[in-house]
């Protein structure tokens, strides 16, 4: 599938900012079933962009801007070719061993309620893939989908008490629950092509199974991440894989406007 992405993030400040620094994890990498054909990160003011990688192997772009900044628009555009993968993620950069992804973080410490839920969801099942499927289905069924919101750093213990969840909350819960069952799991940020309008980046999870490797699960869809997904960054939780984390120097408030278009190109071919 050929997928085009146009992701705009516009900040408007009530007072001019002296300096803005942002760490962007908005550049996908190639895997066996995902090829980046074209990718651009543009910014509408005088800013310096520097590319590097983080400790998890994600592509990182640092953005540095100075001056009297009243507004800032980031535009990420690109085209990615994806292949059917059966949910298996192969040949991604893996600088860290799967075991590391058994770690809890402050946001993903499961707490008793979630741990019990996870154990019950998989009880009596031996096969690791089947256990993960059950967990995915259970998390899909338990919550309604909520429209995306800016990340306020909520923990999985708090999210789990809600009736509706953003993809971010649900992906973090999946990772925490899988770890409770002894399975290395991680948070994934990226995009999902879907009929109708996608208006935010998407998030799902990956879990590690010996002999198969990393398998993707989207607990919002209750399915694996298929060829309609573009995988961008992974980490232990949403904070570690945040598309944008930044700081600004200046008074006042900010208004944030996000627009994401994810389209399938040449669908008829």
């Amino acid at each position: 599938m050929r997928i085009a992405i146009d992701h705009r993030t516009a900040y408007r400040f009530t007072e001019p900012q002296a300096r803005i620094i942002q760490m962007l994890r908005m550049r996908p990498c190639d895997t066996r079933t995902q090829t980046v054909i074209e990718w651009r990160v543009d910014v509408d003011c005088d800013a310096r962009l520097r590319r590097s990688e983080d400790g998890f192997g994600n592509e990182v772009t640092m953005l540095y801007a100075e001056g009297r900044i009243e507004a800032l628009e980031l535009r990420v555009t690109g085209e990615v070719l994806t292949l059917e993968s059966d949910g298996i993620v192969a040949d991604a950069p893996e600088p860290l061993p799967p075991m590391l992804y058994l770690r809890e973080t402050p946001r993903t410490a499961p707490g008793e309620v979630l741990a019990k839920f996870a154990r019950e969801a998989v009880s009596g099942i031996e096969d690791r893939v089947e256990r993960l499927r059950r967990l995915n289905t259970a998390l899909h069924a338990r919550f309604k989908a909520a429209p995306p919101t800016p990340d306020q750093g909520e923990t999985v213990q708090d999210s789990f008490l809600r009736k509706t969840l953003t993809p971010r909350d649900r992906a973090q819960i999946f990772a925490a629950a899988a770890r409770c069952c002894g399975v290395p799991a991680r948070y994934v940020s990226g995009y999902r092509q879907r009929e109708g309008s996608a208006c935010a980046p998407h998030a799902w999870a990956e879990a590690h199974v010996p002999d198969l490797g990393w398998l993707s699960f989207d607990p919002e869809a209750g399915a694996i991440a298929d060829e309609s997904y573009v995988r961008v960054a992974v980490a232990l939780d949403a904070t570690g894989a945040a598309p944008i984390s930044g700081q600004r120097v200046g008074a006042g408030d900010e208004e944030l406007d996000v627009d994401v278009q994810v389209e399938q190109l040449g669908a008829e071919s």
């Binding site: 400790g55 998890f56 600088p95 860290l96 061993p97 075991m99 590391l100 770690r103």
Partner: peptide
């Protein structure tokens, strides 16, 4: 044993590879 490193909070994945 790998778990003593990778499951140890003192191993910081953020600076891995530097």
């Amino acid at each position: 044993p790998p778990e003593l490193i990778y499951l140890n909070e003192q191993f910081r994945p953020e600076v891995n590879g530097i």
